[in-house]
């Protein structure tokens, strides 16, 4: 399989006038829904590392096309946000499929390594501020540049998530409660903007110097930007460091200070909390979606099957937030 891939990759690169010899093509551990390959390209002048990100062509109910992720990255890069440089984009009809090729960024994306290894200790100190800053930069993009992205209001998203949950016919009293609770909340009056949709450890590259790059834009959309601030505060993305509210490494004040170093919008923590419950519910429904891909037989994947048993993580996080004073 990797030999065939090498052939179509090299063909695609030559269309971009990038000629060279591909070597060390290897799959990386990626998300559950996309293939990620790393390779090196030896040209006359130099050897450079690249990443291929490839979707199945079957979009989930929340995810956008992989090639559209590349379009977003190109636009936000021009605004000064830290994202990898895209070198080639392939559409579903091409031999490479729905995919793009980007330059490899040195650093680490695996959350547990970033949180555990000594070499990132210093970087972690300022990371919550840097994340707030980066999130604010993304939110400053001109939304008219993204006609291909879906526009999603909070209430539409809440209803869509709920209806998706209902469609699986698996009763969750906690999700029923959450749905009613969310419908009563205020999520902040703010203009719609580009929302990354999945900004957290795992989807950012961190080096010893700090935040290097924002990756994995498959849940991007246009909507209330405060969603990104609540999402990174969810316990699902603290990887066991439950007392560090922001991503398992920082506190909310630093995140908001970083946000306000770019954006004038003052966010109150109660609104972030509403988004946190929303985000936890959203992740729970995403787990249901992933598991259903396995259960309906469209793919046979132990990884997707196992995600079905992570729904209960989001349920306990929600009852902790709503009834037990969880942060």
């Amino acid at each position: 399989m990797s030999q065939d891939l090498e052939k179509v990759l090299s063909q695609k690169l030559s269309e971009e006038s990038i000629a060279g010899e591909i070597f060390d093509l290897e799959p990386l551990t990626g998300g559950a829904s996309k293939e990620i390959w790393k390779f090196e390209l030896k040209t006359k002048a130099q050897t450079e590392k690249y990443i291929l990100r490839r979707g199945s062509g079957i979009e989930g109910p929340l995810a956008i096309k992989t090639s559209d992720e590349a379009k977003i990255q190109k636009i936000v890069k021009s605004l000064g946000a830290s994202v990898p440089e895209i070198v080639s984009v392939s559409s579903l009809e091409e031999p490479l499929g729905d995919a793009y090729i980007m330059k490899f960024v040195e650093g680490e994306s695996i959350a547990r390594k970033i949180l555990r290894d000594d070499e990132y200790k210093n970087a972690l100190k300022n990371l919550a501020f840097e994340c707030g800053e980066s999130i604010a930069k993304i939110h400053q993009a001109d939304i008219s540049e993204f006609p291909f992205l879906p526009r999603k209001s909070v209430s539409d998203q809440i209803n869509d998530l709920y209806n998706t949950y209902v469609s699986f016919n698996q009763h969750s009293p906690v999700f029923e409660y959450t749905y009613l609770w969310l419908k009563e909340q205020s999520f902040g009056e703010i203009n719609d903007s580009l929302v990354h949709g999945d900004f957290r450890l795992g989807n950012i590259i961190v080096s010893q110097m700090g935040l290097e790059s924002i990756i994995d834009w498959e849940l991007a959309h246009i909507g209330n930007p405060l969603q990104d601030l609540g999402w990174i505060c969810g316990n699902s993305w603290r990887f066991g460091n439950t007392d560090k509210v922001v991503g398992g490494f920082g506190n909310i004040e630093d995140l908001l200070d970083g946000y306000n170093s770019i954006s004038e919008y003052k966010v109150d923590t109660k609104t972030v909390r509403a988004w946190q419950v929303f985000g936890t519910f959203r992740w729970g429904v995403i787990c249901l979606i992933q598991a259903s891909a396995h259960l309906t037989g469209s793919v046979n994947s132990v990884e997707k099957a196992a995600i079905g048993r992570r729904v209960s993580e989001t349920e306990i996080d929600i009852v902790d937030l709503l009834f037990l004073g969880g942060k």
Partner: peptide, 21 residues
């Protein structure tokens, strides 16, 4: 609310008893 808490605790006790919360 107590039942919802107990339900969630009992589910995670099987699915992932090492879960932080």
């Amino acid at each position: 609310q107590n039942i919802l808490v107990k339900l969630s605790k009992n589910k995670i006790a099987v699915d992932n008893p090492n879960y932080s919360t």
